[in-house]
Each structure stands twice: as C-alpha cells, then as structure tokens.
Amino acid sequence: MSNATPSAPFAGVADEQRLRSILYRGAASAFLFALPIIVFLLIWETTVRLGWINATILPSPSNIARRAWVLLDPADPAKSILLTHIVVSLWRALSSFALACVLAIPMGLFLGLNRTAYLIASPLLSLLLPLPAVAWAPIFLVIFGQGDITIIAVCFLGAFFPILYSTIQGVRAIGRHSLWVVRSMGASRFDIFRRVLLPGALPALISGLKLGMAHSWRTLVAAEMLAALTHGLGFMIFAARSYMDVSTMFVGIVCLALIGLLIERGVFGSLEALTIHRWHGNGKVGSHR
C-alpha cells in the first residue's frame, strides 16, 4: 500500500520481538522458580526408593502423585473425592474471607478516621490481633456444634483482624495535607473518600487482604480437623490418620500448599501489579520497558 507508513512493518517486528522476549523471560523465571523444587523432589524420591527412609511414614513423591490421581478420579470429575474436598475447603475459606472484608474494611475506615473511636478500640485490637483464631474453635463448637458455621466463624476471625488493622493503618497514614489539597478543591465527603482515602489506603489494604486470606487459609485446616463432619482438605488429612493413609495426608498437604500459592501469586499478585507496582514502578519517564 502506498499509504502505509514505512515504519509500520518494523513496529510489527518490534512487537513480536518484545512479545517473544516477555514469553522467554516468563519461562525462564518459572523454570528458576521450579528448579529447586524439582531437585528437592528428586532427592526425596531417591532416598525413599533406596530404602533410607521408611515409605510408610514418608511415601515417595511418585507414590503421593499416584494417590492424588486416584483421589482426583479425572475420568468422572463430578464424583471426584479430592475435587469435592478442595471445593468445600475453598468455599469455606472464601466465604469467611468475604465476610471479613465486608465487615473489617468499613470498620477500619471508620476507626482510621475517627480519633476517639480509634483510641477506644486500639487497646482491644492490640489484645485480639496476636490471638490465634483457632483458640476460639472450642467456644464456637460449644455454641454451634460441628459443621460449616463453626469453621467459617473461626476462619472469619483469622481474616478479620489483619484486614481491620491494615485498613486502619492505611487510612491513618494518609497525611492531612493530602486531605487539605482536595478540600481546597471543594471536594465533598464522598469525593474525599473516593479520591483520597480509598486509593491512599489501598497499598496497606492489599497487604491486609493478603495477610487475611493467608490467615483464613491456615486457620481453615485446624478448624476442619476439629469441626468438619464430612468434607474439606483438613478433614481429609485428619480422617486419613485412622487408616494410617500417609499418602492421602500428603496429597492434602500438597493441595493446601499449591492452592495457597495460587491465591497469593495469582489473585493478590495481579491486584498488586494493577495498582501499587504501576504507581511505584521502577520505570523511569520515557522508557516503556
């Protein structure tokens, strides 16, 4: 085409090259991440196969993988035992996390903004924050008995305090000058909230959410061991002890680790990439790399 700018094909080539280099770098970092794990698994496998470790106490990774495959039953996903456990656990963890967000974020914003309320609540929070949520489990068991409500209540407490605390700190860290700037622009209360308080508190809030989710996930296992009747990864691990089924326990542990990692990297990693990393990126002006 005579109209086509001469630079267009070069731009295409540059784009393709850039995409390729991004893919290459992604693959390289994934490999670097996986390498120590692979080496670790190989050593583990070898020591078990050589009989240096009793396989009934520590089964080999291949054994655990085989067990996971059986439990997963990929031929019929609807009836897969492992998938059911995972879904039930995820549902409990996520619903308690969501509940914690809904209550802790508004409360945190309020306590962060209201000095008097903060002074009253602060000593209580300092006392409750370091308390492991599982400690409440027996009390909830007395009130609600075994079942989802007890598990969700315990996980909720695990997630609630880190989110509340981070939200308060995030709001309190916003300087009065920031508020003055928008107030001198004639901002309404809602404008101040939407344009300064919320984005200003977001970095702290995200780390609070991350911590809250991690706490919720950790508390879940213990709560399920104590209070679950039929399902959940914690229940699966705990129930397997009756049959001395160590490989099933390890399948549960591996699932907990993998899902925890996925939530941390996948969900919160991309949330951070969209916000904090973009705002405070190390990219200098003029360079788009």
Binding site: H177, R183, G200, W279, H280
Partner: peptide
C-alpha cells in the same frame, strides 16, 4: 477551604495513584 483558593505545599502532596495529567485535572474532576 474552598475552590477559590489553590494551595501548593512544600512537600508537593501529589497523589501517587494518579498520572501527572489526572493529578492536574483533579480539581476540575471534582
């Protein structure tokens, strides 16, 4: 405070989550 007076502080007080342009349009956006 009111929009008839604009204030510039010693420590800039820009909003890190807004680009230069969005920082500059903030008063008009409000």
């Amino acid at each position: 405070p009111g929009p008839d007076r604009g204030v510039v502080f010693q420590e800039f007080v820009l909003f890190p989550w807004l680009t230069v342009l969005r920082n500059a349009t903030l008063g008009l956006d409000i």
